[in-house]
């Protein structure tokens, strides 16, 4: 069924799909490609953390696992520098899910506050292992076969792969909201003890949500590795990545469908644009931090919820004004 909201959604996605046909500057296709990657990651993260209220700060564990899977498999299977590399992307996602299972088994034993901190601790185990283990190449990282495409169109296949990830993540996230499983996740967010009392198998629901959300993040990690052609442990296992994903979701609207997409698009584009033009990492940190503090103060529930509330309030006001007018007219007539 084509509702007004659906037309807007399809229109926005069509704009994104047409973007590289209109704008062919490699700088810009690369910026929007990264924005799309973060949109997919944040939406996927939100599918567990946003719906269940369990804020996980270890998304980089999955991202890094995906990136290392792609790099290591490309090396050991001698994948040629061609489109064949892209088959490694879903494998990155699957490996990320395999890693998410034991992490979930440990971290989900505790309630929210401690969960956040444990995900941070587990993240550091991953980062330090990647830096210190021998098979990961240590701090010098790993190289992937470099794709021999022309400079002008180099970004385009990556752009559409990232776009496909956004579409899959959004459809999945929208679908989960309507299923029994999604409702159970949101019931956990509202009141876990009550959900448990009402017969929700909270443990199984949380664990499957957590593992499911790892897939797209792992795929994005693999895509990143193939795009860069070289990965370093400090970039694929980056604490800023963990927090950025959470900030993007909160900025747009934690637990909503459109919020993470909007937050990721705005923040990632802004970040890359600032680095491109000012090349000052410190300035970006200040702007990023200050922007987030402003949002918290003025729109504590995120941009999407804020705008929605404003629209509803205006409609209510208009409706009541019409009602008032009608009452006055009716009064005058009497």
């Amino acid at each position: 069924m084509l509702t007004k909201a659906r037309i807007v959604w399809i229109g926005l996605f069509a704009l994104l799909a047409l973007f590289p046909l209109v704008v062919t500057t490699p700088t810009w296709t690369s910026i929007i490609m990264f924005a799309l990657m973060y949109m997919a990651i944040t939406t996927s993260w939100n599918m567990f953390s946003g719906y269940s209220g369990y804020v996980a700060l270890g998304a980089a564990c999955f991202f890094g696992t995906g990136a290392y899977t792609a790099a290591l498999l490309a090396k050991h299977w001698n994948v040629p520098a061609s489109g064949d590399l892209f088959w490694l992307i879903p494998l990155g996602g699957i490996l990320a899910m395999a890693v998410a299972l034991p992490i979930g088994l440990i971290a989900l034993r505790v309630r929210r506050h401690t969960f956040v901190v444990i995900t941070i601790a587990i993240f550091f185990v991953f980062q330090l292992s990647a830096i210190n283990a021998s098979f990961t190449g240590g701090t010098s990282g790993l190289q992937l076969p470099f794709l021999p495409w022309g400079f002008q169109d180099f970004n385009v296949p990556f752009y559409y792969l990232a776009f496909a990830m956004v579409v899959v993540a959004t459809l999945l996230s929208a679908w989960v909201r309507q299923t029994r499983f999604g409702l159970q996740l949101m019931a956990i967010r509202d009141d876990e003890d009550r959900a448990l009392g009402l017969g929700v198998r909270v443990w199984a629901v949380k664990l499957s949500g957590f593992v499911m959300s790892a897939f797209i993040i792992g795929c994005a990690g693999a895509l990143y590795a193939i795009y860069q052609g070289q990965i370093y442990p400090q970039f694929v296992f980056n604490p800023l990545f963990d927090i950025s994903v959470a900030l993007m979701a909160f900025l747009g609207g934690f637990g909503t469908l459109a919020g993470p997409l909007l937050g990721a698009f705005v923040l990632e584009t802004l970040q890359l644009w600032l680095t491109e033009n000012y090349s000052s990492g410190s300035l970006y940190l200040i702007i990023f931090g200050a922007l987030f503090l402003l949002v918290i103060i003025f729109m504590p529930q995120g941009v999407v919820v804020y705008v929605k509330d404003r629209v509803t309030k205006r409609e209510d006001r208009e409706r009541s004004m019409i009602a008032d007018n009608e009452a006055q007219i009716a009064g005058a007539a009497q």
């Binding site: 700060l57 909160f250 940190l285 931090g289 200050a290 987030f292 503090l293």
Partner: peptide, 17 residues
């Protein structure tokens, strides 16, 4: 509590920068 992590993180980014 979840928000506090992000807010204090934002504060720390500003100070770090």
């Amino acid at each position: 509590t979840a928000m506090s992590i992000l807010v204090t993180y934002a504060v720390s980014l500003v100070i770090e920068g």
